[in-house]
Simulated scan of single mutants.
Amino acid sequence: MALPTSVRLFEMAPRDGLQNEPGAIVPSATKIALIQRLASAGITHIEAASFVSPKWVPQMGDAAEVMRGIQRQPGVVYSALTPNLKGLENALAVGVEEVAVFGAASEAFSQKNINCSIADSLARFEPVLERAHQAGVRVRGYVSCVLGCPYEGDIAPAKVASVAKALYEMGCYEVSLGDTIGVGTPLAAKRMIEATRQHVPIEHLAAHFHDTYGMALANLYAVMEEGISVIDAATAGLGGCPYAKGASGNVATEDVLYLLEGLGIETGIDLQAIIDTAFWVTGELGRKPSSKVALAKGLIQQ
């Protein structure tokens, strides 16, 4: 299959990127400024916050304040993770226009992450989707551990397809397939997409790959060959997973953009503005970006 002519990039840095940030709580003003910079660079989908218990994810305790503080730009979707009805109601109260729910393709990971089985987690999401649709809010679904689990090892593509199908049939407009611990390789990624697209139309699937083993870009190329045209990424390669030991950050937005530009694939995003944002946000956090492109460009500019 030919590569897509355009890709929609879904920016994860404000939520998935910062949720596991160690040490001091990142100020709300920094999160808001990050979101503004990303939108100004041309990113049209930004996961801005997570309405979860601050007890479990302290960095996301100011979700309502962040959502209220954003100066929303026309044509930009600011979404939030809402794993339960309480989270959804809190998100609706501050005008969130798109939300997300989070399942797993691994039973062991589901138990460690949300303390219930895959089947139970899907049942819990049903009232969330029902309420969101009543409110006219779109719901995105995530499936984690699609290419491997820290507890179970390899995950069968059929298991991924089964969970993705359930989320899609429940009413998720898009299902993002996450290599949470970044262990996937291109052939495994292709086989996972081949199995899943039998149950969910390819235009309703997205790729969310972490770069622990340095394979994320190769895996993205492989799944774009299978028809994937929506990619999740985080500026500066921010992120990790509190329930997946050893998981590194998301694939960096600037690395993905460099690849896509080299392939002649349209994104509508300003690569230099993202690189500048990567240096700015990691400066706020007291370190440098982990992305190859930001570091290389930074050396050239010195």
Rank of each mutant, 00 (worst) to 15 (best):
M1L: 14
A2Y: 03
L3A: 08
T5Q: 15
E11V: 14
N20V: 11
A24Y: 03
P27I: 02
L34F: 13
L34V: 08
I46K: 03
A48W: 02
A49N: 12
F51Q: 10
K55C: 10
V57W: 02
V57A: 13
P58K: 10
A64Y: 00
Q71H: 11
G75S: 09
Y78W: 11
Y78S: 10
S79Y: 03
K86S: 11
L92V: 13
A93R: 00
G95H: 05
V96H: 00
V101M: 00
F102E: 01
F109I: 07
K112D: 06
C116N: 05
C116V: 03
R124L: 12
L129I: 13
R131E: 00
R131T: 15
A132W: 07
A135L: 01
V139I: 11
V146W: 00
G148M: 09
A156I: 03
A161P: 12
L167M: 03
T180R: 10
G182H: 12
I202Y: 05
E203L: 07
A206D: 08
Y213R: 15
G214P: 08
M224P: 01
S229T: 11
S248M: 04
V251F: 06
T253L: 06
T253A: 06
L257K: 09
L257V: 09
L259N: 01
L263N: 03
E266I: 05
I274E: 13
V281N: 05
Q301W: 04
Q301C: 02
